[in-house]
Design a binder for these strands. Structure first.
Lengths: 331, 331
DNA sequence: TTGAAAGCGCTACCAC
DNA sequence: GTGGTAGCGCTTTCAA
């Protein structure tokens, strides 16, 4: 691995000049530049980020912590973040916390020691105090989706309340007269907001009763179980709004298992808009978050902060969209 | 962020002593140790991996490149790798190449610049020459699953041939008399091996004909299309072995769409053993690779190489297992 | 058992 | 325009 000194020697200039060229600051003679470029080629020189980091220049690694990589929503989100980072010359470290505090803290420690340039948190189980160290060292932080609110950082989230309302309204439009909601963990902000959105509409109707609310944990299995419980409680439901797509997929499976026709007997709508909703039969109607845009935006804002040393913190609430498919409308 | 010098000053010793203690090499007086430990606590000191890296000590970051994060097989694999790395004090950089050469090269460049300690490749589109730089710098490399063979590194793969044979045999046992195979890209070693495994058994039968081989790209959509093509060619097939679970899921969807009963009319078997095979209705029979073990093993071998400066290179072929579910056996 | 000092590869400041 | 050089935080001889 060639060093800057070797390049300088080969090009017959000083390391300072090479450094200036590489970082494109300061003046460098055209002819000198050519010679240096050639030397770089010849030695196949790549500046060491390590040394660069030590020498005070900001590093080019940013981290994204997701709570559950087995939920395709997060890989999709990660892809978007990754794409933008890569195109801007940053490398992404994808950390899967699995909602495991141990892992999370191990990651925080590692990130801190490795001096990441920026940090995107999409995990709900990371506490404010855990971010303290990073924050103290001035590392820009962006909170994405589940991670909820926090001081001193920008927050990016879809309009969960509106999306939930949209879902319920859609089910009503499709003729449903008793709509249940499988809600996610109330410790998670997105789950809370979606529940609120549901209630906002549902409570206007006579059929509404709290027992239409079934708890889930955002994972597929809980969707199956929720359906079971729901059918015992309310054999006459004709619409289900699941708090996310994974639970919706589980719910669909539960319904099919019980021999229930979807959407004829019960219509079903999810939330997230992950690709997998097109995998089921029938395909799932869902409220699509702009996943790609959220990821890109998070990365962009983060990099903006890294490169400008700060910038104002805002709360971005992105719009959602109903995607109508066969789980709510029989052809 | 406290430095080693501050710790040394507070403890009233030299930086060398602190360094010795931290790295647990060389002698340190009990009493001195206590004082240093206390200083470390007090300043909440974490050694900088950056500086440590520059100073010649090996870094604690390893990278895993996967070809397609939207195939749950890879997140599952990554989780296993990640867990083991974390438990051994390493941080994992998860790189999703999307089979995109641009991205791949960008990653390789970044990894090189950041001097990763080790590298696990699970991507098929990374060429030998792309690994050249890493290899030259002495970075240990492990090839996992799709990445195929390469010199100077250990290789870990499931027994794809045997798994495929197992699948076909299982379909035969279930009474199938004409079994098709949806195969993956033949540029990928695992796809080739599975095709071979299929042929090994199928060719022994009179019903076998090359037109039972339908190409796919390991993604769900291609499973749907493959089924369509297959049914045109052979309306009388009664068994399908898909080259991986994602295509199997697609195939299932295609079959259901056409109103075909699974497994009554056509039995279906996948390959990989991803969790999602339990999400469909009917659930999918599949050949399970020991995903967790593969990931852990890859990480373990890699870390072994990192810490021992090399070690012999072996080819590990892990055993697979048939998981029988309703897509091949009607209750 | 401990300390002093020479780098690791690079950036940035100050002279020339 | 260009070069000399002082660190960045740490590890690692080599002496003491």
């Amino acid at each position: 691995m060639a060093t800057i000194r070797e390049v300088a020697a080969l090009a017959g200039v000083s390391v300072a000049t090479v450094s200036r060229l590489i970082n494109r600051n300061g003046y460098v003679n055209k002819e000198t530049e050519r010679k240096i470029q050639q030397a770089i080629e010849e030695l196949n020189y790549h500046p060491s980020s390590i040394a660069r980091g030590l020498a005070g220049k900001r590093m080019d690694v940013v981290a994204l912590v997701v709570p559950d990589i087995s939920n395709p929503f997060f890989p999709e989100l990660a892809r978007a973040v990754e794409d933008l980072c890569l195109s801007r010359g940053y490398t992404l470290i994808l950390c899967n916390s699995d909602n495991d505090r141990e892992k999370e803290l191990a990651y925080m420690k590692s990130l801190h020691r490795n001096s990441v340039a920026g940090f995107i948190c999409a995990s709900d189980s990371l506490l404010q105090e855990d971010l303290q160290e990073l924050r103290q060292s001035g590392t820009p932080i962006v909170m994405l989706d589940r991670s909820g609110n926090a001081d001193d950082c920008s927050i990016i989230r879809a309009d969960n309340r509106k999306g939930a309302a949209l879902a319920v309204q859609h089910l009503l439009d499709k003729g449903c007269r008793k709509i249940a909601h499988i809600y996610g963990p109330q410790s998670i902000v997105t789950a809370r907001e979606r529940l609120e959105g549901y209630e906002q509409i549902a409570q206007q109707y006579a059929w509404y009763t709290p027992s239409l609310l079934i708890p889930g944990d955002f994972r597929m299995e809980s969707g199956i179980e929720a359906v079971q419980l729901l059918l015992e409680r309310h054999p006459d439901v004709d619409g289900i709004f699941a708090g996310n797509d994974m639970m919706a997929i589980g719910a669909l499976k539960g319904l099919i298992r019980q021999g229930i026709q979807v959407p004829e007997q019960i219509a079903l709508c999810g939330f997230d808009g992950i690709g997998m909703t097109r995998m089921t039969e029938p395909e799932l109607t869902t409220i699509a978050q702009p996943i790609g845009e959220m990821g890109r935006m998070a990365a962009e804002i983060l990099i903006g902060k890294i490169e400008s040393n700060g910038g104002e913190n805002r709360f971005y609430e992105l719009d959602v969209q109903l995607i109508e498919r066969s789980s709510t409308s029989s052809t």
